[in-house]
């Protein structure tokens, strides 16, 4: 295994482009090192991207949008008061990953690019409409988070491409997001189902826009349009919530495995969708939940 510590994204992309065999970027390492230790993947080339200037920064633009460096660990997102006020769901989703110790290292982009269908921050990023800057051997591009995972363990990034920044939209008014997951314990489990809801209201409390994303119920994260439509135009009455639950369950295409059965996942997706929507709605109304 070759270990590299580039100081620019162009250098990182060039290293990855020239490498042969298995290549991994090292952000927090909480997936890469586990896979190394468990003999699942021993990269031939490991590119540590934490020495690139700026990768540890969180900044807000004048328009209210946010840029999060690709090496910012969950713990630092949690400690950033303003980010947490704007995007509590996204921050919580990231915070649910692993233990305090894992939080000291794990990153959003690592969670996304590892490609696990159960990754916690991914539904929250998708619901929030997060986009990513990507540096490649031939230049830069911007891509929506929802378009990154293509199959379990696989992303749409081409050889030599490295994510160089995370862009979170401006929060806007009367809007809120939330993320909930189901796990059998209280901590230290991989999601059996995850659900993120991001919505905006008009001044009457009617939902004007919504995005609902589900994790761990299909080979990749799902952005469920029917579920969003169930909410839009409602003020989250019981009927709307039931429609939401049905749409969420209907969208599921899960597997039965050691973590849960098809039946269980499908049912719980509906339950979580309702619970998550209620929190997001309360937040959009300015409640501190």
């Amino acid at each position: 295994m070759q270990y590299h510590r580039p100081t620019s994204f162009n250098e990182a992309a060039a290293l990855a482009n020239q490498a042969t065999g298995e290549t991994r970027f090292l952000a927090g390492g909480t997936d890469v090192l586990v896979q190394l230790r468990a003999d699942i993947v021993t990269p031939d080339t490991l590119i540590d991207i934490k020495s690139i200037p700026g990768v540890g920064d969180i900044s807000q633009a004048p328009d209210g949008s946010w840029t999060i460096g690709i090496a910012v660990p969950g713990a630092e997102m949690r400690e950033h008061v303003q980010l947490g006020q704007d995007w509590p769901g996204l921050v919580e989703a990231m915070d649910l990953i692993g233990s305090t110790q894992v939080q000291g290292r794990a990153t959003l982009v690592g969670n996304l690019c590892n490609g696990s269908p159960a990754a916690d921050s991914v539904p929250a990023m998708v619901a929030a409409g997060v986009e990513l800057s990507v540096t490649g051997p031939t230049g830069n591009r911007r891509i929506a988070a929802v378009d990154v995972p293509v199959a379990p363990g696989r992303t749409s990034l081409a050889k030599g491409e490295v994510v160089s920044a995370v862009h979170v939209p401006a929060r806007g008014t009367n809007a809120g997001d939330a993320y909930l997951r189901f796990i059998p314990r209280t901590e230290m489990d991989i999601a059996v189902v995850g659900c993120a809801v991001n919505l905006s209201l008009d001044t009457e409390g009617t939902v004007t826009a919504a995005r609902v994303a589900l994790g761990a119920v299909a080979p990749t994260v799902l952005l469920v349009e029917d579920a969003a439509n169930a909410l839009i135009g409602s003020s989250l009455d019981d009927k709307a919530l039931d429609r939401l639950a049905s749409a969420a369950s209907a969208a599921c295409n899960p597997i039965s495995d050691k973590r849960g059965t098809v039946e269980f996942r499908t049912h719980v997706a509906g339950v979580l969708a309702k619970r998550t929507a209620k929190i997001a709605y309360a937040r959009a109304q300015g409640e501190n939940t």
């Binding site: 270990y3 090192l33 230790r37 233990s99 894992v102 290292r105």
Partner: peptide, 18 residues
């Protein structure tokens, strides 16, 4: 568990090189 620059981490998930 150890701390690296004051941040709590699992030392099994950090490379020696880091």
């Amino acid at each position: 568990s150890v701390t690296v620059d004051g941040r709590l981490v699992c030392s099994c998930l950090v490379l020696g090189a880091e």
